[in-house]
Amino acid sequence: MSKPDSKVPPVTATLHLVNKTPDHSRFAECLLAMGQGDYLLLMENAVVAVADCRHRLPPDTGFLVADARARGLGDEPSEKGPQPLEYADMVRLTDRFHRIVSW
């Protein structure tokens, strides 16, 4: 599993923090706003997106393990799917990305 801190993003790259369900308009708006080098972090209610068959998530997507476990999700490891992240991993992401947008 590649850790999220393996690459240094360009200055304009953005870390997107989403805490809404995939049915919330902000979720779709966030996907529209994503560009080259961006990373999508699913938090709180947004973690149900990992089980949502209607959406294809971007390759650089992670989800908070605590939120996923709480909702009975995300314990099965997947090769290419979203990366499970602890809060300390989230800190590594927020350290790396200069631009951070909450949706």
Binding site: T12, T14, R26, L32, A33, M34, G35, Q36, D38, R99, V101, S102, W103
Partner: peptide, 15 residues
């Protein structure tokens, strides 16, 4: 039509 380039032209985006 807000896209990645539009949002990136701002230092912060507050919602």
């Amino acid at each position: 039509s807000p896209d990645a380039a539009f949002y990136r032209s701002f230092s912060h985006v507050v919602q």
